[in-house]
Design a protein around this nucleic acid. Structure first.
Length: 370
DNA sequence: AACCCGTGGTC
DNA sequence: TGACCAAGGGT
């Protein structure tokens, strides 16, 4: 005897059901789309930057970096001509630093091989480093109006729920979602005033990001409620368990005339995590017993929650902390605090230095904008 | 295919 | 506190 199975739905291109979903989705999107800095920009370079930043990264974190990054690198050529360290510096705090390296590498390639003009098709975009299936489709549809479906984590969740499939994470589920997304994306060409495919793709993602949430979907507000087979049921795969670890760092400052310098350590180039980036020197846990930290904070890296303490020498003659750091290290540098914005700092180091007012927090807007 | 790469808000 | 996880890509 067969087990009872939930109803399933499958969309055919150009079917009445597909048309209905598109219409409901778009009319909802027109009213509820968030006003994000990269929405409505008419510059493929900016779309590219925003899409790379958004890979596995929360919108709020991207908002914090997007404007600063584009102020520093306003054009593809500006990015291509910049040193990699300054690109990493602008990326500091966003994580997945390989994205910044690949973005920079791709910009240099485009300047050298294509006269600085970004490719206009998903197929060509797909060949760039750091541009995969998702990002190539996103840029091609949003910036150039190509009728190609975007599939990200949001789209996958929305479509599995709407259709009632229970194949999360499987290869068959991936294929099914890709087919469904392709059947739903409008074929209409971009015009002067409208971009059907780009808007549809953004609307699918917007629905997943704001209503069709992983844990607690807001089904009663959903424009697809009457079409939806599950109305919220959704199984997610188990993830690796988290762990917690203590960590201690040294904050060492010195004066050079009117300037202040801070001691930083450069991570090894062959480190798997954040290679070549600068951070406060780490202190062994047993070297800080009984001392009072000047700052405590939590910092999460992948599957680890670090409970971080930052220590500073109590005076010029307090050598105990300095001695805790092996003297033989040749990767220690005194960095002027007014140059920290130009340094590729790890996210934790940037956060600590900003929190302790050693490093200025770059303003999001200029004062004259107020 | 499975694993690795960063981060921080939230509950 | 520990756990969850977000507009993925590369290997």
């Amino acid at each position: 005897m067969k087990e009872a199975k939930a109803a399933e739905l499958s969309f055919e291109a150009d079917s009445p059901e597909a048309t209905l979903l598109r219409r409901r989705l778009m009319s909802w999107y027109k009213e509820h789309a968030r006003d994000l800095p990269w929405r409505g920009v008419d510059d493929p370079y900016r779309t590219w930057v925003s899409e790379v930043m958004l890979q596995q990264t929360r919108v709020v974190a991207v908002i914090d970096h997007y404007e600063q990054f584009l102020k520093k690198f306003p054009t593809l050529v500006a990015l291509a001509l910049a040193p990699e360290s300054s690109v990493l510096a602008a990326w500091s705090g966003l994580g997945y630093y390989r994205r910044a390296r690949m973005l920079h590498k791709a910009a240099k390639f485009i300047l050298r091989e294509r006269g600085g003009v970004l490719p206009m098709t998903s197929a060509e975009l797909r060949t760039l480093p750091g541009v995969g299936d998702y990002t190539s489709a996103a840029i091609a549809s949003i910036a150039f109006g190509e009728s190609i479906a975007v599939v990200d984590g949001n789209v996958e969740r929305v479509l599995l729920r709407v259709t009632g499939r229970d194949e999360e994470g499987t290869a068959a589920g991936k294929t099914f979602v890709q087919m469904q997304a392709a059947a739903l994306v409008p074929k209409k060409k971009m015009t002067e005033t409208s971009n059907a495919a780009g808007d549809h793709n953004q609307a699918m993602m917007e629905l997943g990001a704001t209503l069709c949430l992983p844990r607690t979907p807001l089904c009663l507000q959903c424009p697809l409620y009457s079409l939806c087979q599950t109305r919220g049921e959704h199984i997610t795969p188990k993830r690796k368990s988290q762990r917690s670890l203590p960590a201690a760092y040294l904050l060492s400052l010195r004066k050079r005339g009117t300037l202040t310098e801070v001691l930083l350590e450069r991570r090894a180039n062959d480190a798997s995590l954040m290679p070549g980036m600068y951070e406060l020197p780490a202190l062994p846990q047993d070297g800080v017993e009984g001392r009072e930290p000047m700052l405590r904070l939590r910092h999460s890296i992948t599957n680890t929650n670090y409970y971080v303490q930052v220590f500073a020498p109590r005076g010029p003659q307090d050598q105990a902390l300095r001695r805790a750091i092996p003297a033989a290290k040749n990767d220690l540098f005194w960095i002027r605090t007014n140059r920290l914005q130009q340094q590729p700092l790890t996210g934790l180091t940037r956060k600590v230095l900003q929190r302790l007012d050693v490093m200025e927090v770059a303003p999001l807007r200029m004062p004259e904008d107020e």
